[in-house]
Design a protein around this nucleic acid. Structure first.
Lengths: 311, 311
DNA sequence: ATGAAAGCGCTAACAC
DNA sequence: GTGTTAGCGCTTTCAT
């Protein structure tokens, strides 16, 4: 069945007939056990709610499936414990490589990944000590750049807005604080108490909260374009004009940032490229017998200034 | 290792030490082969870009993981061929049940699912002849209800706007046509030539196209809230007021519909409940030895009238 | 409570 | 080109 050409046409016909009649489907577990090849790559993402991971997975999927691999996606829900369980599950499946979001893991996770002797790619962040490959960008620098953009516009009272404070959001906040400090300022911080995933509705809620507190800043840097869009809409509802009364800055440059009204300034990040490169490097590592040297790739980011900060 | 209580404490300690030192992880393929239990449920969705599937998967995941199952998510990219391949892959994995989006499959897909002797749940639509279980809603009725709402407002020139025309979008369009016909009208149809996934940017593009053609309707029913939001933003950019100059209606009642400015009228659909119920029925079927009768559950939908159609 | 042994359904290597 | 056979690493059953 796996090499139909290597068999007489007559036999091939009989085999196909039998397959169809019996509804026979080869047992992958047996095949994997016997060949010790699973043709499966494990991918861990923190959530499926955020479209950036959909884009990333799309690119990964494209390349890996074309190369004959299965892609096993697990989500860790932003929990290191769930991530550790996901790693165990993937190793138990004997995936041939693991592509994992972020660079912060439990000690056991690191240990498991290190001694598993398979290609590991950490993505979206830059690690001080990568387990193996690392493809990402400096979230802290990006946060700093965004904030410097606002400061450069003459804005002084700047707030940082986020839903849950996962590690990447925290790094952006660190960058924001650094930029403010360098300018002799301090950011206000608007952080949702209850960790909810980033959404337009949450951005709207958080801005409403801030507005009602009476302490409205001159500019808001949101960790995410969804939050930014929600904040912009809430501004309008409350009679504030963007950017005249308040400047708003997003993050990720999602598809709608260019066409929202007003259009949204953001930091463009490279999700497709991250996925594509991770997949390519994994394939390369799997095809070369010798272990390639651990490598770190900085994909960078780009500041996109649009109407929402055109003060 | 699987029953630590059934072993002397001393041995248990030695086992754990060995496990840690060797980085031992049990081989799931071997376990599955030996026990002929995979504890895995396969789920097929058409895309990961649409947040409704994230919500659905979240609910599914919650219940199935809590019950000790693995969830294997595959996406078919709205292609029946890819869906067929996904089904083969899942059956090869010997998943214990399959939860699949939609009710339209290739003949071979139907055959494979029928003769696999495992619980199958088709979701999001209602099928005239379900393979096994079917949990969904009438997309056509929902499209009809939305359109009747617009007609009831005295609007006559109504357009239907969609990105790609997958089967569910087609059904909503059918419902829209039916309502128009009953009122003695004909809908205009705005359909993206290049199938792209639904997004705010696409809604914006499509409305811009329509506006430039000069033939602007009195109301637009969009297959998706993302498209609707994009259309609303593009309206504002072009100096049209919603709902005064044009009424806009979305679909799915995504999180942001309530907080956009103006707030968006929509049809609320029940993604969480669909996932929850599908997971519960699968677990029930797996626990009862006898095959439960094929069943069809209509989860319905709700018209939510908000500012964008408050004419 | 512990050890021994058969066999799950394939793959890979070999003989025919 | 075709048939045969020994494992892959577990689970399950049976002896001890």
């Amino acid at each position: 069945m796996r090499k139909p050409d290597a068999v007489s046409p007559a036999l091939r016909v009989r085999v196909n007939a039998a397959v169809k009649e019996l509804g026979y489907v080869p047992n992958l577990a047996a095949s994997r056990l016997a060949s010790s090849r699973t043709h499966t790559i494990g991918v861990i993402v923190p959530t499926l709610y955020n479209v950036i991971f959909a884009e990333y997975l799309f690119a990964l999927h494209d390349i890996l499936v074309a190369a004959g691999f299965h892609v096993l996606v697990v989500n860790s829900r932003y929990s290191q414990i769930e991530e550790e369980n996901a790693i165990k599950a993937l190793l138990g499946q004997r995936v041939e490589a693991i592509i994992i979001t972020g660079t912060h893991h439990t000690p056991l996770s690191r240990q498991l990944l290190s001694q598993a002797r398979l290609p590991v790619v950490e993505t979206f962040e830059l690690s001080p000590e990568p387990i193996d490959l690392n493809i990402g960008m400096s979230q802290e620098n990006a946060g700093q750049t965004a904030t410097q953009h606002l400061i450069g516009l003459g804005l002084r009272r700047i707030a940082f807005l986020t839903g849950n404070l996962d590690h990447r959001a925290q790094s952006r906040l660190d960058g924001c604080r650094l930029a403010m400090e360098q300018a002799g300022l301090r950011p206000a911080e608007i952080i949702a108490r209850k960790p909810r995933h980033s959404s337009v509705a949450l951005g709207s809620d958080l801005f409403a909260m801030t507005h009602e507190s009476g302490d409205v800043p001159e500019a808001i840097f949101c960790t995410d374009d969804n939050l930014a869009l929600g904040a912009m809409q809430e501004c309008r509802k409350r009679g504030m004009r963007v950017p005249d009364d308040i400047a708003i800055m997003g993050f990720h440059d999602l598809e709608f940032a260019a066409c929202s009204a007003p259009s949204l300034s953001s930091i463009a990040t490279r999700r497709f490229e991250t996925g594509k490169l991770a997949a390519e490097r994994v394939l390369a590592a799997l095809n070369s017998s010798r272990t390639p040297a651990a490598e770190q790739i900085d994909l960078g980011y780009t500041l996109i200034a649009r109407e929402s900060t055109a003060v």
